[in-house]
């Protein structure tokens, strides 16, 4: 199993870097989420149980199907297909992503884990995904891409949880998934509201609201 887990983690990192360099990222973020939801199946301390299968399936449906649908709908209403003027360009974002990755590997080496991790890559991959999500939230102008950054951030936390703790208690996991679901739902509605009120979803212009 460690080979498969490593494969998924590396695919996760590569997709994360692609997301940093892409202007249309909904599908990529969905792919990242779908990849991640395979993780619980591979890392099971007690073998394959209904619990694990349900968790995996639930997160697959939410992250792979429901979220992208919601966001595509919001996009359709707001009529922005992609980010045109990010604060940080796509190629520089990728280069910054590389630096972040190196930092994550360094940091991952510094942090001792309780118990034994499934793979050496888990911690760096999780840290990288979290940090790249944060970076997206900061470096992109449109509300939509910021929502996607938030999703990437959540993917990172999910990686961390699944792989490091070896299966978070079911209820907590479900609760987190619910939270994210509600968050995306609310943000989707908020996107539409912002768009209706201002005819764009450029979050930068909200700065002028500061007194």
């Amino acid at each position: 199993m460690p080979v498969l887990v490593n494969g998924i983690l590396i695919a996760l990192i590569l997709v994360g870097l692609l997301i940093l360099g892409a202007s249309r990222m909904i599908r990529l973020v969905a792919l990242q989420g779908a990849l991640l939801s395979l993780m619980p199946l591979l890392i099971t301390p007690h073998g394959l149980t209904w619990r694990v299968a349900a968790l995996s399936l639930g997160s697959m449906i939410l992250k792979g199907i429901v979220f992208p649908r919601l966001l595509f709908r919001a996009v359709k209403h707001a009529q922005v297909r992609r980010e045109l003027q990010p604060y940080v360009g796509y190629s520089s974002s990728m280069v910054i992503g590389m630096a972040t990755l190196a930092a994550s590997f360094w940091l991952g080496g510094q942090l001792p884990l309780p118990g034994e991790a499934v793979s050496d890559l888990v911690l760096p991959a999780a840290l990288f995904t979290i940090l790249s999500g944060l970076f997206l939230v900061v470096a992109r102008r449109k509300a939509l891409t910021q929502v996607l950054g938030f999703l990437v951030l959540e993917n990172g936390i999910f990686t961390f949880g699944v792989a490091v703790v070896g299966g978070i208690p079911f209820l907590i996991e479900l609760g987190v998934l619910m939270d994210v679901f509600v968050a995306v739902f609310v943000m989707g509605i908020a996107l539409q509201q912002i768009n209706q009120a201002f005819e764009h979803i450029d979050a930068d212009q909200m700065n002028s609201l500061k007194g």
Binding site: I10, L17, L18, G21, S91, M94, V95, M98, L101
Partner: peptide
Amino acid sequence: VGAGVMSSL
């Protein structure tokens, strides 16, 4: 840049 990223990874 993608190729560069793969190499550095």
